[in-house]
């Protein structure tokens, strides 16, 4: 295939968790994604960068079933999940945060966490008659402590700062112990002090075995976090490989700076 020259000096040995194969998405006459391809392997932190309008968020929306694919295929752990309903995909083991932090403002921080619990085997009657399991509570509190929000557990989530909401979102995605987490610009709109906290949380969680795919505009952050990088441009793959190498490429610089 012509798209995406590989500079594969990184040895990718683990099994693929997420495979995006030639995904195309058109809105009427506009093609937002044109045969985008991506692979995330178990235990990796994979970065996705590209200038504004490259189709990064559209890609996440396609993966998560928010948009129906025009063409192509998305696989999670070898199972085809193309154009499935979002909640089905989440219950299959993939969760996602949004570019703009989104919380349920009138629910408490802890309740915002509990919403993300495993819903796969939940019985309707049980949800009315019994509260969440103690293990779920404990895990939620543990994750809140991990991202430093434990003192705010009983406050309404609407009172959190943007950065804190992002931390809450990241913690929330992990409650159901997903195979992979997609993070859409975790550092955007966050004050610099918290950016480091977020980056550190991601690294720590990765050490414990979590797999991430991250869209990010902050180049320092993406360099320090990701071990493999995809560059999207005009909805299609431009480059991929080790971050340091990829970001030096002529084509990448041109896409970003027009020169």
């Amino acid at each position: 295939m012509s798209d995406g020259q590989t500079t594969d000096t990184v040895r990718r040995t683990t099994d693929p968790v997420l495979t995006v194969d030639n995904v195309t998405k058109s809105f009427g006459g506009v093609t937002a994604l044109d045969g985008a391809t991506l692979e995330v392997r178990d235990g990796e932190i994979v970065g996705v960068v590209g200038p504004n309008g490259a189709g990064k968020s559209t890609l996440f929306n396609c993966i998560m079933g928010v948009y129906e694919l025009t063409d192509g295929r998305v696989e999670l752990d070898g199972t085809d999940i193309s154009s499935q309903r979002t909640d089905v995909i989440v219950n299959s083991g993939m969760s996602r945060t949004f570019q703009l932090a989104r919380v349920f403002p009138d629910l408490t921080v802890r309740e915002n966490m509990l919403i993300n619990q495993e819903h796969r085997n939940e019985r309707l009657v049980e949800t009315l008659l019994s509260p969440s399991d103690q293990e779920v509570y404990d895990r939620a509190d543990e994750l809140l402590e991990f991202v430093g929000l434990e003192k705010l557990a009983s406050s309404p989530a609407g009172e959190l700062s943007t950065g804190q909401k992002k931390l809450l979102n990241i913690a929330g995605t992990l409650l159901s112990d997903p195979e992979i987490v997609l993070l859409d610009e975790p550092a955007a709109g966050v004050n610099p002090g918290l950016v480091d906290d977020i980056a550190q949380s991601i690294l720590d969680l990765n050490d414990r075995g979590a797999t991430f795919c991250i869209i990010e505009h902050d180049m320092d952050m993406i360099r320090s976090l990701s071990e493999y990088l995809y560059v999207l441009h005009n909805g299609t793959n431009l480059e991929q490989g080790e971050p340091e190498t990829v970001l030096q490429k002529e084509a990448v610089l041109e896409a970003y700076f027009g020169q």
Partner: peptide, 16 residues
């Protein structure tokens, strides 16, 4: 209550 506040976000948390 979550569905009331933000349906997409509720689906994103795995709720049908």
């Amino acid at each position: 209550k979550a569905i009331n506040m933000d349906q997409e976000l509720a689906a994103n948390a795995g709720l049908n």
